[in-house]
Design a binder for these strands. Structure first.
Length: 633
DNA sequence: GTTAGGG
DNA sequence: CCCTAAC
């Protein structure tokens, strides 16, 4: 079912393409963004972009992934959030040429199927309907600092990212166009296009949103976005309307007065032009990237997006368990729930930078130690509970850094990148079990490092057939730099550790066990052959770039086990006897590999002896360095 | 931060 | 796979 969903997503995307081809000759460029629960858009991290791309690319292969459960987990967990009108976030793809083509990859579609008459009514390509299920109170109390970030950095082209439902507001003007899209869409059509015209008059004149009833707000919403909503959360409605009218995410949920389609905030923080009558280019110009830290009195948000990641997960897991979560469900429940299980910490600048550093480390191919991971996890957790967050969030100017994704250059607050660390277990586990093919660079490194290149490659290909664990390995054939792989893999690891924690001694569960596959073993053997034993970090970096859930320690441990196995299994007494024969699910390491391991082990021990002898005799250790005999200390 | 080795 | 001493 999830796979269907994904394919639907793909179809939808195709539909969008069709539309674009019909509508203009401009190539369709999708921009992935994340819609936060309060409507702010967060640029995707590189790994998100890549992974989504991968999903689309690999959708056909999904059913054959060995661990389908992970796929399901991914969809249900990360995206079930979207199934309800109060979901927290989603992915939207925005066409960079300004045409709104949001796409939510899964749950949104499911919303369409399940509740065709709900929110995303006339939204041609599943324009993300991000309902803020979080009561604003939560935002306030938790310091849900959404740094409002809109894409601006791409100054050279008019394709600055149009964000959010503010885009939808614009869409209002191109509604006819949109609807034709809807009609021509080949995807699961979003039925239920509202036929009646929104009552635009509701926004005419001077109207204080605070004074409107929910019904009126809904109407105003419809007038603003061209679609209906069933959301009854006044604050949410007000904020969304405001956002739509101001084309800005930087809005307040109260105190706003609409004056002839213009938003006049009571605190006079700014009077933003409406999008009415503003050329598209200008509208887009107003979406220029700017990550703003909202001033005091503003209820939003801390940059610590990861906070909600955890919450998302909890919520989604709740839903998986069938726990109903209503729009109005008190966040207290959530907090209690979470507070009981997790500790929080107030988001400090230091914390943000810390995480950012972690990412940097990740990009350099370094893994944080488990201890460090643990520290981060704790940080994450504590943040959730601390009620003082907003104090910080109100006054601190968060640093931004320039970053690029999807061809866009944007200023990303550290906070948004922090989201890398958000728990996305399912997403990750899916990835982990489907490691993308190595980038050419890595592949080359692997292939050139062994004198038996051909053999190595052949091994890889043949073993794919045999080892079911390997079936998914070669599938993720999308472009990805080694660094990116490192990054998301680091994240994977991070998530693995932080997310999998139930409550062990340090609050962290052990890393998810991942059986070593034959190809991994081969890589390891080849790596040892090339770099020598003990060069685990090097081997990891060069040979395991696409398996970065393997740490250097893992490599070391595995090598140790391989040596043991080679010594026992290849010994005359046990000849031909598979020690763990009883368990058919365990794929034995082929004797050929064990033989090679044994050879290497002997070689290394010889080298070690030689080195020791040389050292002992006071000679130069030149020889010892020759073959990676790092091990005489 | 990495490696080695015990658990 | 975890932990930690040693480097």
């Amino acid at each position: 079912m999830e796979v269907d969903t994904l394919q639907d997503a793909q179809e939808t995307k195709n539909g969008g393409n069709d539309f674009k081809e019909n509508g203009s000759l401009d190539p369709v460029v999708y921009q992935l963004v994340r819609v936060e629960g309060d409507g702010t858009l967060v640029p995707p991290t590189e790994d998100e972009v890549l992974q989504i791309e991968q999903f689309l690319d690999d959708k056909v292969d999904l059913p054959s992934i060995d661990d389908v459960g992970n796929v399901e987990d991914f969809f249900t967990n990360d995206c079930m959030l979207l199934k309800e009108p109060d979901f927290e976030e989603g992915y939207s793809e925005l066409e960079t040429n300004g045409e709104i083509h949001t796409q939510q990859f899964d749950a949104d579609l499911e919303v369409d199927r399940l509740k065709p008459s709900v929110d995303s009514l006339d939204i041609p390509s599943k324009c993300t309907v991000d309902h803020d299920h979080k009561p604003d109170k939560l935002n306030t109390e938790q310091g849900d600092n959404n740094i409002v970030h809109q894409d601006n950095a791409s100054t050279e082209t008019p394709k600055s990212t149009v964000l959010n439902d503010s885009c939808s507001a614009e869409k209002e003007k191109t509604d006819a166009c949109s609807r034709s899209v809807n009609n021509s869409s080949t995807g699961p059509s979003v039925s239920g296009v509202t036929s009646s015209v929104p009552d635009f008059s509701i926004l005419r004149g001077e109207v204080c949103l605070d004074n409107l009833t929910i019904r009126e707000l809904q109407e105003a919403f419809r007038a603003t976005f061209g679609r209906e909503t069933t959301v009854k959360d006044k604050l949410w409605l007000k904020r969304r309307i405001t956002m739509g009218l101001t084309n800005s995410c930087d809005v307040q949920s109260s105190g706003c007065v609409v004056k002839d389609y213009k938003i006049v905030c009571k605190d006079a923080k700014h009077e933003l032009p409406t999008i009415e009558g503003i050329p598209k280019a200008e509208v887009e110009a107003t979406s220029l990237v700017r990550y703003q830290v909202l001033g005091p009195g503003n209820e939003r948000d801390t940059p610590s997006c990861s906070y909600y990641r955890s919450e998302d997960q909890q919520r989604s897991s709740n839903r998986l368990k069938g726990v109903s979560t209503d729009n109005d469900e008190s966040e207290g429940t959530l907090q209690d729930e979470q507070g009981a299980a997790k500790r929080l910490r107030k988001p400090t600048k230091r914390y943000i930078e810390e995480l950012s550093d972690t990412e940097t480390l990740g990009s350099t191919g370094k893994l944080s130690s488990p201890g460090k991971m643990a520290a981060h996890g704790e940080v994450l957790l504590r943040q959730r509970v601390t009620p003082l967050q907003e104090v910080d969030s109100l006054s601190i100017t968060y640093p931004t850094r320039k970053d690029t994704f999807g061809g866009f250059s944007v200023h990303v607050p550290y906070a948004s990148r922090m989201r890398r660390g958000r728990p996305r277990r399912n997403f990750i586990s899916f990835l982990d079990d489907d490691p993308p093919v190595e980038c050419p660079e890595v592949q080359m490194a692997v292939e050139t490092m062994s004198g038996k290149d051909g053999e190595h490659v052949n091994h890889k290909n043949t073993e794919k057939k045999g080892g079911h664990i390997e079936t998914a390995e070669k599938k993720g054939g999308h472009i990805e730099t080694a660094d990116n792989k490192e990054i998301h893999s680091i994240e994977a690891d991070d998530i693995c550790r932080s997310d999998a924690k139930t409550k062990t001694k340090r609050g962290f569960k052990r890393k998810h066990h991942r059986a070593w596959t034959l190809s991994e073993v081969l890589k390891l053997v080849d790596g040892v052959a090339q770099f020598g034993p003990g060069k685990w970090s090097e081997i990891r970096r060069l040979s395991f770039a696409s398996y970065s859930y393997r740490t250097s320690v893992d490599l070391k441990d595995k090598w140790r086990n391989l040596i043991r196995a080679s010594q026992t299994q290849l010994s005359p007494e046990n000849d031909g006897v598979c020690p763990r024969k009883s368990n058919p699910s365990i794929i034995p390491v082929p004797p050929a590999i064990l033989l090679r391991v044994k050879e290497l082990a002997e070689l290394q021990s010889q080298a070690g002896n030689l080195a020791a002898a040389i050292k002992f005799s006071g000679q130069s250790s030149k020889v010892a360095q020759g073959r990676g005999s790092s091990g005489f200390l």
